[in-house]
């Protein structure tokens, strides 16, 4: 299951990361508007789009590479009526296109706000379709509430990580003030913490659902706690570590008035933690994809 599906696995993560980044790009100007930090906001939005667009392009390329007949990829949107995959593909295409347009407009100095919001909408629909399409399979581990929860929380978490990186980068070049940095880092910490709690709380519910499920669901559980036990532990640990370290960084920043740059190490560590957690989460998700078919 795992090895053959690597392109798809990366596709989901990249799209979700892009969604997180675009979401930040959409809300950030509001957060900074009251402070009159228009230039900073512009810069951060641009940087975020600079992460989102290549991620999307890469994701689209990966999804093409997964096809047996890439030349026919356009036909993948022929069954919007009933296929969530069709919808996902249509909207991921739109998402990519609109995000590119937004980035281009932004670059040209034109107003990109509508485009960003439109692309955000596309992104949300994409990830929603993505979740539905996994739910529509015959793999009990994918057919639960857990799929949308993990996809959207992944988007947020990866958004937090991207945001933190962008902030740090901009701070390093003196393009954002320490104040803005602190403010936004605080927001990211808060988001990360809430999302982490959602993720942690969803796990026992997920286990509960699977344990009541058919044989394939039990087999998935068996895998998750057996062969993939370490990965599961790692995934949870890394998530907690990522958010925890980010919180520490933010705490140091606020309390000790230490130089913002000195928290850089912590931010990197946190990003590493979050990314590791989400990648592992996705690996586990794929590994648990045991079909109800026999033999």
């Amino acid at each position: 299951m795992l090895r053959g599906e690597l392109p798809l696995l990366l596709f989901t993560l990249l799209v979700q990361m892009a969604l997180g980044a675009v979401l930040l790009a959409a809300v950030l100007p509001f957060r900074l508007a009251r402070r009159g930090a228009g230039a900073e906001s512009d810069l951060l939005v641009r940087r975020l789009l600079c992460w989102a667009v290549p991620a999307l392009v890469l994701a689209m390329a990966l999804s093409l590479s997964h096809l047996g007949t890439p030349g026919g990829a356009y036909r993948a949107i022929f069954n919007l009526k009933t296929s969530w995959l069709s919808r996902e593909i249509l909207f991921s295409g739109l998402f990519t296109l609109v995000a590119m347009l937004a980035a281009w407009a932004h670059w040209k100095g034109k107003s990109s706000r509508v485009l960003i919001w439109f692309s955000l909408l596309c992104g949300i629909v994409t990830v929603y379709s993505m979740a539905r399409l996994y739910q529509m399979t015959i793999k009990p581990a994918w057919m639960t509430f857990f799929t949308p929860v993990s996809f959207f929380t992944a988007a947020l978490m990866l958004g937090v990580a991207t945001g933190a990186l962008v902030l740090l980068g901009s701070l390093g070049r003196g393009q954002v003030s320490a104040e803005t940095f602190g403010l936004l880092l605080g927001d990211l910490v808060a988001t990360g913490a809430v999302v982490l709690v959602v993720q942690l709380v969803s796990v026992p519910f997920y286990v509960g659902v699977l344990s009541r499920g058919p044989r394939a669901a039990q087999a998935a559980l068996h895998l998750l706690f057996g062969q993939y036990g370490t990965a599961l532990g790692g995934r949870l640990g890394a998530g907690v570590l990522g958010v925890g370290v980010l919180t520490c960084g933010w705490y140091l920043l606020t309390r000790k008035e230490s130089k913002p740059v000195s928290v850089a190490g912590l931010v990197y560590l946190s990003v590493a933690g979050i990314v590791t957690a989400e990648v592992l989460a996705r690996v586990l998700f794929y590994a648990a994809g045991i079909s109800i078919s026999v033999g």
Partner: peptide, 25 residues
């Protein structure tokens, strides 16, 4: 028409659809 996305193989409870790597469908 098939583009070899293999989604049907994830959709059939009976493992009926079979991907043909040589044909890409």
């Amino acid at each position: 028409v098939c583009i070899g996305c293999r989604y049907c193989t994830w959709s059939c409870p009976y493992d009926a659809p079979q991907y043909n790597p040589a044909k890409g469908t």
